[in-house]
Amino acid sequence: MTLLSVSGVSKRFSRKPGILGRALDRITGESSAQTVHALTGIDIAVPRGEVLGLVGESGCGKSTLGRIVSGIYTPSDGSVTLNGKPVARMRGGNVQKLTTAVQMIHQDPFASLDPRMKVGETISEGPRLHGLWSASEAQGKVRDLLEQVGLEGAYANRLPHQFSGGQRQRIAIARALAMEPELLVLDEAVASLDVSIQAQVLNLFMELRQRLNLTALFISHDLSVVRHVCDRVAIMYLGRVVELASAADLYDAPQHPYTKALFASVPTLGTGRAAFQPIEGEIPSPLDPPPGCAFHPRCPFAGPRCRAEVPALKPAPTGVVACHLNDGGTELGKTAA
């Protein structure tokens, strides 16, 4: 059953010109307003119990999508529904319900916890505010949650600075779980942790996921982490999903030229010296995206059609792929070039 449904979602951020800019616009007769197309036409459905990975480089829109799903941003076009109810246009009391249904876990546990609040207060603030917990039961529930994330219940009376980065991220997870959310959005939740601590937090996430049947959007740039914890993975490039497939298929047989290039450019442990092939060129600016397929300036297979026409997401041998080479049958890149 579909829990989260994102359909046709676009997000544009505009910068209106200042007073000098407006004066100049009058003189020149041109508009200096700039628009960033952060997301264009995103369609994603997440069934209950699934962990969907969102992967891409900076500017691809993965964090923007996470924030739209959480209700922090409203989309410019399209709609987001959770359990069939719209998320994006919620107002008033419905927003409050949403904020309990979707919980976010952020990258930096040093910035996301209030340094002057005891950990127990941080965890219980949300449920108390939304009337999920009474004052009398809060203490016991906080203790339970801390133990669930592998910390001692007595830590509730400590302040964030008394914890290490990994422990703080556990506290952030406990805070999110306190709201008994239907959907978790993890935005680079392990990116700032040391390798040895990252494994601990990933193990905790996988264990909680099993136990609580969590549904989650797992936003990350780290391909090996995503492979490990996600069921399906969406690869994003400059505001669009270019490939979406099960994690196993995507990693075994990437289809889109960008996905292939991304995998080839990542150093992996144990492959020996310089066994990686970098992608040529830079990520284009979302202020001025190239026409047609946004990846065409860096793509070794790009043809005239790629420069003119934006490819749509279509079924491929595995998953869905947005590429003009995708004819639904043969593996991409084998027929062309």
């Binding site: 290490s164 990994g166 422990q167 040391d194 390798v195 040895s196 601590i197 990252q198 494994a199 601990q200 990933l202 193990n203 996988m206 264990e207 090996s224 982490v225 492979r227 490990h228 914890v229 994690a247 196993a248 992996t268 442990l269 144990g270």
Partner: peptide, 22 residues
């Protein structure tokens, strides 16, 4: 350290972890 890198293990399985913190 090497064992806690996810790419060396089958997806979804618990990762060997170093206990404690730095």
């Amino acid at each position: 350290l090497i064992d806690s890198v996810p790419s060396l293990h089958p997806p979804g399985q618990p990762l060997p972890q170093i206990p404690g913190s730095t």
